[in-house]
Each structure stands twice: as structure tokens, then as C-alpha cells.
Simulated assay, not measured.
Amino acid sequence: MKTLVLLLLFGFLSACSTIPEHSKELVYSNNIPSAWTIEGRLSVMRNKKTDIVGFEFSQQGGYYQLTFSGSLGFGQRQIKQTEQGLFIDDKPTLLTLEQWMKLELGWYFPVEALEDIVFKGNNNKRQGWQIST
């Protein structure tokens, strides 16, 4: 019985080793869709403190919607750029996105760079941000 169990275990383990690994290389395109969405996380280090923020960014027809959420999804903020201007949590503001982020969060992530990062693979360091996908 012990031999049978060992043979089955060995057979299972050797079968696992033959599974091919998929390449981690991503394929990029110069064709950018008119509507797209990306979700991710930002890790911000400033003044020896680290903030981790979840985000969802949607762009359609030249306008965008950006949602930030804190740890475990708490503290959600919604930013919309529309034909009527910038709205924070459905309230209009005269601030730019950069001004609002620096005022409210203490940092600014260049969302205008997301299109190049996502579709063109341009992961260069941007305005002090190290980008990894």
C-alpha cells in the first residue's frame, strides 16, 4: 500500500513538472481604443510613510473617471472629468486634478501617462514614479 501511494505521489509530482511556463512578456499595440478601463494599486512613499491606494481609471471619448479607495476599500473618492469640468464626489471644483490630488492626498500621480503605459508599454520613470506592471 505504501509503495502504491509513493508511486501515485511521484507520478503526480512528475506530471506537474512538465507543465510549460507561460511567458511574462506583454504584447503592446499602438491602437488605443476609444473606451478603456484599468484597475491597479499605487504605493506612495513620502516623508518616510507609505500609502497604498487602490484605483480604477476609465477613459471614454476624451473624458475620464478615476476612483481611489484606501485600505480594504474604505474611504473611496470619485473624480470625473466631463465636458462641464472636474467633479470630485459629484461636486464641481475649479481645481485641476493635479492641484486637487496635491491638496487632498499630498501627491500627484500623472494619470495622463496611463495610456502610454497600458497600450505602448512605456514604463519609463515618470515625475518621480517608478512604474511596474
Rank of each mutant, 00 (worst) to 15 (best):
K2R: 12
T3F: 10
L4G: 09
L6M: 13
L6T: 10
L6Y: 08
L7A: 14
L8V: 13
F10G: 14
F10S: 12
G11R: 03
G11S: 15
F12L: 13
F12Y: 14
L13V: 14
L13Y: 04
S14H: 05
S14T: 13
S14W: 09
S17N: 10
T18N: 13
T18R: 14
T18P: 04
I19A: 14
E21P: 02
S23H: 09
K24C: 11
K24Y: 14
K24E: 15
E25W: 03
E25A: 08
L26E: 04
S29I: 00
S29D: 04
S29Y: 03
N30I: 06
S34K: 06
A35P: 00
W36I: 01
W36A: 01
T37K: 09
E39F: 08
E39A: 10
G40L: 02
R41F: 06
S43F: 08
S43C: 12
V44A: 04
V44Y: 11
M45W: 13
R46K: 15
R46Q: 14
R46A: 05
N47M: 13
K48T: 09
K48A: 15
K49F: 09
K49I: 11
K49R: 15
T50M: 08
T50F: 06
D51W: 08
D51G: 01
D51I: 03
D51A: 06
D51L: 12
V53P: 00
G54F: 06
G54E: 04
G54K: 03
G54P: 01
F55D: 00
F55T: 00
E56K: 15
E56Q: 15
S58C: 02
Q59Y: 03
G61H: 10
G61A: 11
G62K: 08
Q65K: 13
Q65A: 12
L66A: 00
L66Q: 07
T67I: 05
G70E: 03
G70C: 03
G70R: 04
S71M: 11
S71V: 11
L72P: 01
L72W: 06
F74S: 07
Q78K: 13
Q81M: 14
T82D: 00
E83Q: 13
Q84S: 08
G85H: 07
F87Q: 06
F87V: 01
D89R: 01
D90M: 12
D90E: 12
P92Y: 03
P92T: 12
P92A: 07
T93K: 01
T93Q: 02
E98H: 05
E98F: 06
Q99R: 05
Q99P: 04
M101W: 07
G106Y: 11
W107K: 03
W107Y: 15
Y108G: 05
Y108V: 04
Y108A: 09
Y108Q: 05
Y108W: 10
F109I: 03
P110Q: 09
P110L: 07
V111H: 01
V111S: 07
E112Q: 06
A113N: 07
D116A: 09
D116P: 00
I117K: 02
V118N: 00
V118Y: 04
F119L: 04
K120H: 11
N122Q: 11
N123M: 10
N123P: 00
N124F: 08
N124W: 10
K125F: 05
K125A: 14
K125C: 06
R126I: 09
Q127C: 07
Q127Y: 15
W129H: 09
Q130G: 06
S132E: 07
S132W: 07
T133Y: 15
T133N: 15
T133P: 08
